[in-house]
Amino acid sequence: MKKYLLSFALAFVSLTAFAQADYDKIMSDKIAKIETCKTPEDFQTLANDFQRIGSKESSKWLPAYYAAFSTIQKGRVMMRNGNTQALDGVADEAEKYLATAQNLAGADNAEIRLLKKMSYSLRMMVNPQQRYMTDGARATEEMNTAEKLEPDNPRIALIKAEDVYFTPEQFGGSKTKGLEMFKDALAKFNAYKPKTALDPNWGRAEAEYFISQPVK
């Protein structure tokens, strides 16, 4: 009987190892596609892919995190294209995924808090003047929480640099100061080590891009 139990245990461990390896490969392939997405449709397709992975791997927070990130990136492309009136719906979708990710990972996760900040920022852009004190304040609160949780996180430094770079000077922004902050973010990227190969590691290319641009 002990022999059969041992055989069953070994078989279970082997199946679990294969399943983990398969999950790691699928996730790695999908994460790599983030860099190649260009259009809202590209990001929506990727978000759907991560959502399907998450439905099969219901105990893991990263599929929901990346579904949220892909959705937020979709919204950021829409914002750059001037399609701001649809951003509430995009934020709704992202925040649904973030609720799942936070439920699995816990509230003290700086990466999730940063995406919540980015989602509230999308909402604010629907009507910045009216929403600065509501969604803008929520975005600031989430950013502050993320920074307290993980002050050396380069993605936090990156998004702070974006905020300063793109905010008009009359409202406290500065392209020159933003550029220096992008340099600080890049230094943090150089020192940063993700916890696993699947953990968030996006943003370096964006910091490098802005640093390479002349200040106008």
Rank of each mutant, 00 (worst) to 15 (best):
M125F: 07
A17M: 13
A99F: 00
T196F: 08
M78R: 08
S119P: 03
Q73K: 12
N201S: 15
E150Y: 06
Y66F: 10
P154N: 06
Q20E: 14
E180L: 10
L122M: 10
A94L: 05
Q170F: 12
A67K: 01
E41T: 11
E142Q: 14
S121E: 10
Q130H: 11
V215I: 14
I112C: 02
M124I: 09
S70C: 14
D152I: 03
D184R: 10
V90P: 01
K160G: 08
A139Q: 00
M79H: 07
K33A: 13
P200Q: 01
A17E: 12
L122T: 08
A21G: 15
Y23N: 11
G178K: 00
L114K: 04
S212F: 02
Q130L: 13
A91G: 10
Y66L: 06
T134Y: 09
L149W: 00
E147I: 12
D92C: 02
F166D: 01
D29K: 11
Y209V: 03
G82R: 03
N109P: 04
R155I: 07
E180S: 10
N81V: 04
V164C: 00
I156E: 01
E150L: 13
P214N: 03
D29G: 11
Q44V: 00
K116S: 14
D24H: 13
L98Y: 05
Q85D: 11
K96V: 11
D135M: 12
F18W: 13
R204Y: 05
R76P: 03
S70F: 08
E180H: 05
G178C: 06
Y65S: 10
V77K: 10
A161N: 01
C37E: 12
A99Y: 01
A64N: 06
S59Y: 03
T145E: 04
M78V: 05
L179R: 08
A191L: 14
F69H: 08
Q20A: 08
T145K: 07
V215S: 03
L15P: 13
A207C: 08
T176Q: 13
Q102A: 14
L115C: 04
A9K: 06
Y132E: 11
G136R: 05
F166T: 04
F43P: 03
S28F: 02
P128E: 07
T45V: 14
S7C: 06
A32Y: 00
Y209Q: 06
T145V: 07
I159N: 02
K183W: 00
L87F: 07
D135Y: 11
R123V: 06
K56L: 09
I159H: 02
